[in-house]
Design a protein around this nucleic acid. Structure first.
Length: 292
DNA sequence: AATTTCTCCTGCAAGC
DNA sequence: TGCTTGCAGGAGAAAT
């Protein structure tokens, strides 16, 4: 499942399309696309029989030259340089691929045909992801300003300030993109394990020393995962734009390891649902809060 | 206002 | 072998 390291790996692997011109765009699944004027939450979540609006010419960068690739948290922006941008959420199973072959694949939803013959494809089996057509830089800034700071550079005092007034489990707060942008279920469990913090502890109980360990763990783990090209799980769902898998899954200490020994103390890792997400932790290293 | 629950969707694994 | 069932989960909307 793509989180910050996977999205950053996708961004880097897409760099070879900077400078290319988009000749034409094919929308195969309108529901994976949101253009200005679509209902809140995107066309796919509209109630009733809402007729999809046509996609305005140029909204998907057709005719434009790709100038920049940016990322904030788990969101990727492909910009044309004149302010128009494509904002891409990978959701659970979303992929952006550069292909030489024109052959369509199952779950291809949007295809950008470049003037040099390559194709950039948004493919998403589970369709939790999508592409947002943004008309100008203000639209992109509005979306990204609504998110917390990028997790790769979070500092301890900022993190603590953001958690201080929250009566949720720390796990829920870390998954909230308005608190911190980029952490999902894998890296939340990895960071909490490294920082020795129980996932059910109240966010407001995080003290300065906890925040110091947690912010440091988040930055260190995310950077290591970026360096490894992200986490490709056994199901193989994730790979970058060139099809390369990431190797960080071999270094997971908590995620997916319930029932296995803790890498730090050998005690068997346990698992339960916290904040509506399967969570794995070490009952010795990450001490439980009183009422759990 | 803050927090939790519901919902979307498909592929895969386990069980019979 | 082929069916059913359960599970995985990001994040917006709806409910509490």
């Amino acid at each position: 499942m793509p989180e910050l390291p996977e999205v950053e790996s996708v961004r880097r692997s897409l760099l070879p399309i900077v400078g290319a011109r988009v000749e034409r765009v094919a929308v195969r699944t309108r529901r994976s696309l949101v253009v200005p004027g679509d209902p809140p939450g995107g066309f796919s979540r509209a109630r009733g029989d809402v007729k999809p609006r046509p996609v305005p010419r140029g909204a998907l960068l057709d005719g434009a030259t790709i100038k920049r690739l940016d990322r904030h948290g788990k969101q990727l922006a492909i910009g044309s340089g004149d302010g128009r941008a494509l904002l891409i959420h990978l959701g659970m199973t979303g992929r952006v691929e550069i292909r030489d072959s024109p052959r369509a694949q199952t779950h291809d939803h949007v295809v950008w045909a470049l003037a040099d013959g390559r194709r950039v494809v948004f493919n998403d089996a589970r369709r939790f992801g999508g592409v947002w057509a943004l008309p100008d830089t203000a639209a992109l800034h509005a979306r990204w300003n609504a998110l917390g700071p990028d997790a790769l550079t979070i500092d301890a005092s900022d993190l603590r300030e953001r958690l201080r007034r929250s009566a949720r489990p720390i796990k829920a707060a870390l998954l909230d993109q308005a608190v911190l942008a980029g952490v999902g279920n894998i890296y939340a469990d990895e960071s909490l394990h490294a920082a020795r913090i129980h996932p059910a502890r109240l966010a407001s109980s995080i003290r300065a020393d906890d925040a110091e360990r947690l912010a440091g763990a988040i930055r260190r783990i995310l950077q290591a995962a970026v360096d490894a090209g992200g986490s490709t799980l056994r199901d193989g769902t994730y790979s970058d734009a060139s099809g390369a898998a990431g190797s960080y899954a071999t270094r997971h200490a908590a995620y997916g390891r319930a029932g296995e020994p803790c890498t730090r103390c050998d005690v068997t890792l346990v698992s339960d649902v916290i904040a509506q997400r399967t969570s794995v932790w070490c009952p010795r290293c990450q001490r439980a809060p009183r009422c759990v």
